[in-house]
Amino acid sequence: MLINLGRLLMLMIWGFLLFNLIQPFPKPLKYFLDIVLFFMVVMHALQLTLLKATLTKDEAKPRAAFQERVFLFGVFEMVAWQKQQRAQRPAGRGR
């Protein structure tokens, strides 16, 4: 429930930042939002890169749709993925 609320919040933030590109806000706010958008793209791309780098060779490569969701939703998608991985793990293995 809270993960879906976080995803919705992230979509609203992306929409707000992209709206600034289409219909710019007044000058000081426009530049601030441009910097925030750049920072968010870099951080989400870094998160996706780190996810790919931490997967072992025997693990399947993430699908393109999953990679897009990680880039779009960031940490909220990673938490959902981690919960799914824990649920799929056999009892007694791992933590």
Results as ranks from 00 to 15, higher is better:
M1D: 03
R7S: 01
L8V: 04
L8I: 07
L9W: 05
M10Y: 01
M10G: 00
L11R: 00
M12Y: 02
G15A: 13
G15I: 03
G15Y: 00
F16R: 07
L17W: 06
L17F: 03
L21V: 11
Q23T: 08
F25H: 08
P28M: 08
D34L: 03
L37S: 07
F39D: 00
M40I: 10
V42W: 13
A45W: 11
A45E: 12
A45Y: 06
L46D: 08
L46Q: 10
Q47I: 06
L48V: 10
T49R: 10
L51P: 02
K52C: 11
A53P: 00
T56M: 09
D58A: 11
A60Y: 05
A60Q: 15
A60E: 15
K61W: 13
P62K: 05
P62C: 03
P62G: 02
R63Q: 11
A65E: 11
F66N: 07
E68C: 15
V70L: 15
F71D: 00
L72R: 09
G74V: 10
G74M: 11
F76H: 11
E77Q: 15
M78F: 01
A80N: 12
W81S: 12
Q82A: 03
R86L: 10
A87I: 00
A91D: 06
G92C: 11
G92K: 10
R95K: 09
